[in-house]
Design a protein around this nucleic acid. Structure first.
Length: 406
DNA sequence: AAATTCTACAACCGCCGCAGG
DNA sequence: GCCTGCGGCGGTTGTAGAATT
């Protein structure tokens, strides 16, 4: 047996709201609050059902609604969150202040979905469509780029699956003392971050920043590139200003890369670990309780995070040969990030990617026992994946609005 | 200028989960 | 445990205006 209608519909008005109706609804709610939506229309003198009133209020009349064009940052967030959450518009909306789920849903359906499709990306899976592989230029480099993208996407989906599992656990347990959740909440309101699975994975912000670093790679052996990488990482580590951005001056004077400063948190969550605290995984090649608690399940995530954590100490490091002469941390930071990429991309060519017996974190490139003392293999991975970063940036640049699409 | 098609988005519909009786 | 009502959600439709033919 079907449910009875939410209210008596005979004689009730449907369709677009008139300014007079809006005014009645606004005036009533401002004075009395909405209370029971079912009872509201009669009290407010409206020939509408309660459900219609509620929708009109939540999607249009509410004073804390931002209307108008979506910003680049908002578009980015929607796409990234959609990759994680699918069509869970209300969950996505909690991460876009002052935007309603209905508005986001409409924007996705009318703009973003079409744009992704045009670019040969399946808007449901967020993967390149199979025919896109065959419709390229025929250039082997293009195929290689797409292959890299597929590898990245695979890693991303793996992280996504983990996030969803974590989210269910966190939400169901409602554990406010969870160090990961409490750390990330900081002084912000909880609804901006929960469910945790909706946290933004690493994406184009960092890719752009890294691209910026690589674009300015010097031909001689000065430290410009290192400065850019260091600036990038320092920005990533700036957890105090999660919504601000930082510009990286291009030392050649031709370009600017921008990265959101809360990337460290985003990246860490994207890979299932806590950004500041979880760096124990690689110390002795076993999972610490802390790692497990934070959902750190593989070397890649631990390496990534350790790299971000220590990366802001990078000094005297070149991108082609990494040696440690003064600061082990400076080497470990970059080395760990490279190891993270190596792990994610499934490379086996890193010269020295095995944990050492010494308790130095196990990264190569330092003065640790058993190491070959260089990071040449890891930097090679950086070089090889430049094609990937370039392909991503090409996609960004190909978008008419500059909206990042992956 | 009129007809048609396209686009954007407001609004509706049906289903679901939850709480209270 | 079952029933009922409410609020919320996501899919879909309706409509107005813009663009195109």
């Amino acid at each position: 047996m079907g449910r009875s209608p939410c209210c008596e519909k005979v004689g009730l008005k449907k369709g677009p709201w008139t300014p007079e109706e809006d005014q009645k609804l606004l005036a009533y709610i401002e004075e009395h609050g909405h209370g029971s939506w079912r009872a509201l229309p009669a009290k407010a003198g409206l020939q509408r059902c309660g459900k219609s009133c509620r929708l009109r209020w939540t999607n249009y009349l509410r004073p804390d609604i931002k209307r108008g064009k979506f910003s680049l940052q908002e578009e980015q967030t929607i796409i990234q969150l959609h990759a994680l959450l699918g069509n869970r518009w209300s969950a996505i909306a909690t991460h876009l202040p002052k935007r309603t789920d209905n508005e986001i849903k409409n924007y996705w359906n009318t703009h973003l979905k079409k744009r992704l499709t045009k670019m040969g990306i399946d808007p449901v899976t967020h993967k390149p469509k199979t025919n896109a592989l065959g419709s390229g230029t025929g250039n082997p480099k293009d195929a290689a780029n797409l292959s890299h993208m597929a590898q990245w996407e695979s890693a991303r989906l793996e992280a996504e699956a983990r996030l969803v599992r974590e989210s269910k656990l966190l939400v169901s347990s409602n554990n406010n003392n969870n160090p990961l959740v409490s750390h990330q909440l900081g002084s912000a309101s909880a609804h901006q971050f929960l469910p945790k699975a909706a946290a933004v994975p690493p994406c184009l912000d960092v890719l752009k920043a890294w691209q910026g670093a690589w674009l300015t790679k010097p031909t001689n052996n000065n430290n410009n590139t290192n400065n850019n990488i260091m600036a990038c990482m320092m920005a990533m580590d700036d957890l105090e200003s999660p919504t601000s951005t930082l510009n990286f001056p291009d030392h050649s004077g031709s370009a600017t890369a921008t990265v959101t400063t809360n990337f460290a948190v985003q990246a860490a969550v994207g890979f299932g670990v806590d950004s500041l605290d979880d760096h124990h995984h690689d110390q002795n090649n076993t999972m610490s309780l802390q790692d497990i608690a934070f959902g750190c399940t593989d070397n890649a995530s631990a390496w990534f995070v350790e790299g971000f954590r220590t990366g802001n100490n990078i000094e005297n490091v070149t991108t082609t040969t990494i040696t440690s002469t003064t600061s082990t941390n400076s080497v470990h930071g970059l080395a760990n990030i490279m190891e993270g990429f190596a792990d994610v991309f499934g490379y086996n060519s890193v010269n020295d990617d095995q944990p050492n017996s010494s308790a130095d974190g196990g990264e190569e490139g330092g003065n640790n026992g058993g190491s070959d003392g260089s990071c040449a293999g890891a930097s090679g991975i950086f070089e090889e994946n430049k094609s990937y970063w370039n392909s991503i940036l090409n996609l960004v640049n190909a978008s008419p609005t500059g909206s990042p699409v992956f």
